[in-house]
């Protein structure tokens, strides 16, 4: 009982802090200095129409490199910890039933469509809302549908890890190319900027975002495959 009382006391203190923050908040009426710089100079600097994409890939590209590294570490740790629980060839201890005909036929229709939609989302990241992380999550949903349909299928971890490693290495190589050929690390002016609003514009942003989308999709798929293959 005293434990709940102490917890409620802590939450009361925290909520008084939040009320103080809420009362002192007044919405802005004009953009602040940083946002106005991004609004005025994004098209001239990078040629992208989606300002959030331009910030993630070029202006703050080093943060994205760090985030991709953290995701890689997470996928590796999950695969490492769960691989010690797996018995080799222990399929017989599973009591899963095979999926019905409706699910199998439906997934044969839906999986290529989902993969196509995911590829569309991360290729068009610089023109419309979208990008590498959203497209990668959609591609991972296609893998999930395949896992649900056929629980006994063993995904080849080699293919997923090869895809992920190549995408990561190419991402860093493009960053270093930006250092050598243009202004700085992960600068997108190594490819021509092109016409504003067309698909092949904004320099190297579509290429970088495609690589990020493939890498994130491969990592999420590997995490889910590891979790579903861990034996009891």
């Amino acid at each position: 009982m005293t434990k709940k009382f102490v917890v409620l006391l802590l939450l009361a203190g925290l909520s008084s802090m939040f009320v103080g923050l809420l009362l002192g908040y007044s919405p802005d009426t004009a953009l602040n200095h940083t946002a106005r710089y991004y609004a005025d100079n994004t098209v001239a600097d990078t040629g992208a129409a989606n300002i959030v994409t331009a910030i993630i890939v070029t202006y703050r590209g080093l943060d994205t490199l760090g985030e991709v590294t953290v995701l890689f570490l997470t996928a590796t740790i999950v695969a490492l910890i769960l691989s010690q629980a797996r018995q080799p060839g222990g399929v017989g201890s599973r009591k899963a039933v095979a999926a019905g005909e409706l699910l199998q036929t439906g997934s044969r229709l839906l999986v290529p469509l989902i993969l196509l939609f995911g590829a569309y989302v991360f290729v068009n990241g610089h023109l419309t809302p979208g990008g590498g992380f959203q497209g990668g999550a959609i591609v991972a949903s296609a893998t999930l549908l395949m896992l649900l349909t056929d629980p006994f299928r063993r995904f080849s971890h080699r293919l997923i890890s090869v895809l992920e490693s190549i995408s990561g290495v190419l991402f860093v190589v493009i960053g270093v190319l930006g250092l050598v050929l243009a202004g700085g690390f992960l600068d997108n002016r190594i490819l021509p900027l092109g016409a504003f609003g067309s698909l092949f514009s904004a320099g190297a942003i579509p290429v970088i975002y495609t690589l990020i989308g493939l890498k994130v999709g491969a990592e999420f798929s590997s995490m889910m495959a590891s979790l579903s293959e861990a034996e009891d």
């Binding site: 953009l31 609004a39 098209v43 129409a49 504003f196």
Partner: peptide, 30 residues
Amino acid sequence: PILDEAVNVADAAARIIDPVPQALVLTAIV
């Protein structure tokens, strides 16, 4: 903060909201 036919490039600074918190939250969700 997306510049398409609804928002011109010229008057973008008066029509869009701050794009930086959205970039931060994208990273945080992943």
